Computed example of a mutant assay.
Amino acid sequence: MFIEVDNCHETAEELAAKLEKYARSFRRKVKDTDGRERPMWRTHWNAPATRSGDATHPPVLLVRNRIGERNPNRTIPRLQELTRHLWQGQGQGQRQKGGHHHYDGKIPIIAVGLRNLREHGPTGAVVARFGRDHPQLLWEAIGNARREAAEAWEMEELTVRQEE
């Protein structure tokens, strides 16, 4: 997970430019020690493979520390608009079988206020993933629980068919 601290001094446009740099960095490829080309960030950090084949990117946690003059309640909605192409899943509005979206090549962008983080801790339901309408636990926000449930159901269904 990458962490970006926003002290409320930057505009939504400035924060969006930073997130664009993260996206460019995540797309950069290099030859690994085995001679295969892969995303550069994966040569330093590991991420689990997904059954669906989604090319996952590490999440970016935007921690808002309200000490500057900017109001995060106005900045964050604008930032979501500016960065929608970075985080919005495929099939948005028309979910996949099982009710989930694919986030192939997308960045999970998660926002949390420092005050809420202090009050509830890192295990509290205080983080908000861009594109979702309610606070979640961190692990729920960075994952795709509907996809995981659909995959588990498909595996169970396959097992039943094989047994029959």
Rank of each mutant, 00 (worst) to 15 (best):
V5F: 05
V5R: 13
N7K: 09
N7W: 11
H9Q: 09
E10M: 07
T11Y: 08
L15Q: 10
A16E: 03
A17M: 11
K18L: 11
L19F: 14
L19D: 07
L19R: 03
E20K: 09
Y22E: 09
A23Y: 14
R24P: 00
R27H: 07
K29Q: 14
K29A: 12
V30S: 11
D34E: 15
E37S: 12
E37C: 08
R38Y: 06
P39W: 10
R42F: 02
R42P: 03
H44Q: 10
P48W: 01
A49C: 00
A49T: 04
T50D: 01
T50L: 10
R51W: 02
R51C: 00
G53C: 03
A55W: 02
H57S: 12
P58E: 08
P58C: 11
V60L: 06
L61T: 13
L62R: 03
R64W: 13
R66E: 15
G68N: 04
E69Y: 04
N71M: 07
P72V: 04
P72F: 03
N73M: 07
R78A: 14
L79C: 11
Q80C: 11
T83I: 02
W87A: 01
W87K: 01
Q88I: 03
Q90P: 00
Q94A: 05
Q94F: 00
H100E: 13
H102Q: 08
G105V: 02
A111T: 15
V112K: 05
V112E: 07
G113A: 13
R115N: 13
R115V: 08
N116T: 11
R118T: 12
G121I: 12
P122R: 15
T123E: 12
G124N: 07
G124P: 03
V126F: 02
R132K: 02
D133M: 06
H134N: 10
H134S: 15
P135F: 09
L137Y: 14
L137E: 12
L138A: 14
W139C: 09
E140M: 10
G143D: 10
G143F: 04
R146S: 03
R146Q: 03
E148D: 09
E156W: 08
L158I: 00
R161M: 04
R161C: 00
R161A: 09
